[in-house]
Amino acid sequence: MIKFTLRRLLLGLIVLFGVVLITFILTRVVPSDPAAKWAGLRATPEQIELARIQLGLDKPIYVQFIRYMTDLLNGNLGHSFRTRQPILSDLQSRLPATLELVIISSLFAILVGIPLGVVSASNKGKLPDHFSRLFSVGVVSLPTFWIGLILQLVFYRILGILPIGGRVSLETTLFMDIPTITGFITLDALFAGNFTVFFDAVWHLILPGFTIGMYPIGLVARMTRSALLEILNEDYITAARSYGLPERTVLWSYALKNSVGPTSTVVALSIGYTLVNTFLVEAIFAWPGIGSYIATAVTGLDYPAIMGVTIVSTVAYVILNLVADIVVALDPRVRV
């Protein structure tokens, strides 16, 4: 088991190196001149040259690559063209907001998706199955950004019950003291015992969380269903039924435990989707997270920022997959 983990880690490192290589190649592919961009619109040729030296673009390509890697290992992701701040600190300040969304939507995915898949598989061919399947396939066909807009239209404009965006309402920002311990407004408010802020924050989480969570719900439900269908055909399920065990136990205990493998892979995959969907959705809901950061970076062609977020997200994604692989390997049958 330990050998397996070490081997996976080593593989992960090799892969990360490849990722860094690719991102580096990307940064050098841009059609426009990064030095010019850095120097600004009204820069003189001398200023652009200065910028070029500053950015180290005058050195040969392999030197640049080495510098790029050492920078990364030191946590230096460069500076954003737009904010002129170190990208790492930009990201750090925005991380909790995005994490809140990722956690909420993943919870949605698991708490709604898995039971949906189980109900669907155990009622195969009957009405609940057809409904769930249509629902799942429908939900993964919805463009996330579009559903966000529609939800805003319905719940904010027409019904007026949910806020259009932001993490807390305007009044709260102006009049209340938002505690900042973890950066998670919900948790911080709870710790401080400030329930008005807490409820306000939760209220604001509903629409964006649901928007992002829809796709993973469909994904998880479908995967759970197909994994479970395979399992329910196995002999040991028939045997368990022949011993007279109640269907409830057979489904939720016996069958489900066998699906941990494929399920955790799907959960990892859906968290990955969530990560990317936040890019599309945060802008719509004026959510000050990494997503809106990269959305603005993309529109403004702020290359270092795009690069920084790409690397950080990819590293997170690789770690996530590593964890999922380890969970799968915990299956007693898997010989590692």
Partner: peptide
């Protein structure tokens, strides 16, 4: 009905042994 079979018969009065011992036992328990 399935209910009755479960409550009264399966395991309690009638029991079954299957062909393939490997696939009859749940591998993760």
């Amino acid at each position: 009905t399935q209910e009755e079979m479960r409550e009264i018969y399966r395991g309690k009065r009638i029991s079954m042994i299957f062909q393939d011992p490997m696939s009859t036992l749940n591998p993760v328990f």
